[in-house]
């Protein structure tokens, strides 16, 4: 099976500061990778690199080509990026996920609108379709952004801290929803919460300037230490093994 995404010995960063050094990663169609690591370790940078928002200084990032064009990648950036007060309806925000295939005039057709209503249905936000995004709760807004990432039927989905600023109930529902997509779309998800996501992901990538790939949903404190990934201090306090082994 050919990988959807190949990152080969990439070094990149901002201005003259390298954030990621000599990282490599292959992502296959049925992957669900949890990306963990300390703040400022380069987790978001990794996603921005894959999205093409940042160019590699060295090495290469290759997306699989199918029928002569690159596969679609869905992206859900961190919460804080969008302007929550901009007067835009939920439907319009969801449809912005179709812009990459549209060209700059972004003419939307009937089937685009139909696709928007079916994905909003799937995400449980159909009743909010004509509401302004500014009036939504944190959890509702995240579901809108997930719908925006999925509307273009991506083969690969990138999620950056999708459950921050939301409550526990939302968090569980969100992960369950993602779990339904496992196998249909490859997922790379950045998270602080190692304990919770270990029940859903198939493998981990520890990012802290370098990238260590751990081909299992179980990971021990010793392994994390060996990867140079001081995440356990943030993620699960005094009882790391209890939390991590929950799904054994």
């Amino acid at each position: 099976m050919e990988p959807l995404l190949k990152i080969e010995s990439v070094t990149t960063g901002y201005e003259s500061r390298a954030v990621l050094e000599d990282i490599s990663l292959k992502v296959y169609a049925d992957d669900f990778i949890g990306v963990i690591g300390p703040n400022g370790g380069g987790k978001t940078t990794l996603l921005r690199l894959i999205m093409g928002l940042l160019r590699p200084w060295k090495g290469s990032v290759t997306l699989l080509r199918e029928n002569g064009r690159k596969i679609n990648v869905g992206y859900m950036p961190q919460m804080s990026q969008a302007d929550p007060h901009f007067p835009l309806t939920v439907t319009d925000v969801v449809m912005s996920g179709l812009m990459s295939g549209k060209g700059i005039t972004g003419r939307m057709r009937r089937r685009d609108r139909a696709r928007a209503s079916s994905i909003m249905d799937e995400m449980g936000i159909a009743h909010l379709s004509s509401v302004s995004v500014g009036g939504l709760s944190g959890g509702q807004r995240q579901r809108v952004f997930l719908a925006r990432a999925l509307i273009g039927d991506p083969r690969l989905l990138l999620l950056d801290e999708p459950v921050s600023f939301t409550d526990n109930e939302f968090e569980k529902g969100f992960y369950e929803k993602l779990y339904e997509y496992r196998g249909r779309v490859a997922i790379i998800m950045v998270s602080h919460d190692l304990g919770t996501i270990s029940g859903y992901v198939k493998s981990f990538a520890c990012v802290n300037r370098t990238l260590h790939y751990h081909r299992s949903a179980k990971i021990s404190e010793e392994q994390l230490r060996a990867y140079g990934c001081p995440i356990q201090l943030v993620a699960h306090g005094d009882v790391p093994h209890t939390v991590l082994k929950r799904h054994e």
């Binding site: 928002l53 992206y75 950036p77 990026q81 969008a82 901009f86 912005s96 812009m99 925006r148």
Partner: peptide
């Protein structure tokens, strides 16, 4: 609305 996201398309 979302400049960062717009840069992806």
């Amino acid at each position: 609305f979302d400049e960062e996201y717009a840069r992806t398309w």
